[in-house]
Amino acid sequence: MSARASLRLRDHAYSNFTAKLLSRDIQPGQIVSQRELVELTGMPLGAIREMIPRLEADGLIKTVPKRGLQILSIDLELVRNAFQLRSIIEGEAVMAFCETATSDDIDRLIRQHQDVRDAATSAVSPDILQKAQQIDWDFHDLIIDAMGNAIISDIHRVNAIKIRLIRNLDTRMLPELVVSVLDEHLVILAALKERDVEGAVRALQTHINSAKRRALGM
Rank of each mutant, 00 (worst) to 15 (best):
R4T: 06
A5F: 10
L7C: 02
R10H: 02
D11A: 12
Y14P: 03
S15L: 13
S15A: 15
F17N: 08
S23A: 15
I26T: 08
G29M: 03
Q30M: 10
I31P: 04
S33Q: 08
E36D: 08
L37P: 06
L40C: 05
I48P: 10
I48Y: 03
I48S: 03
P53M: 09
K66T: 14
R67H: 02
R67Q: 10
L72N: 06
I74D: 00
V79N: 04
V79D: 05
I89V: 14
G91M: 00
E92C: 11
A93V: 00
V94D: 03
M95R: 15
F97Q: 01
C98D: 09
S103L: 03
D104Y: 05
D104E: 14
D107F: 00
Q114R: 15
S122Q: 15
A132Q: 03
I135V: 09
I152S: 01
I152T: 12
S153L: 01
I155V: 13
I163C: 03
R164N: 14
T171L: 15
M173R: 04
L174Q: 15
E176H: 12
L177K: 14
D183P: 02
V187N: 14
A190C: 00
A190Y: 01
K193A: 05
K193S: 10
N209K: 11
N209S: 13
R213V: 06
A215M: 02
M218W: 09
M218S: 12
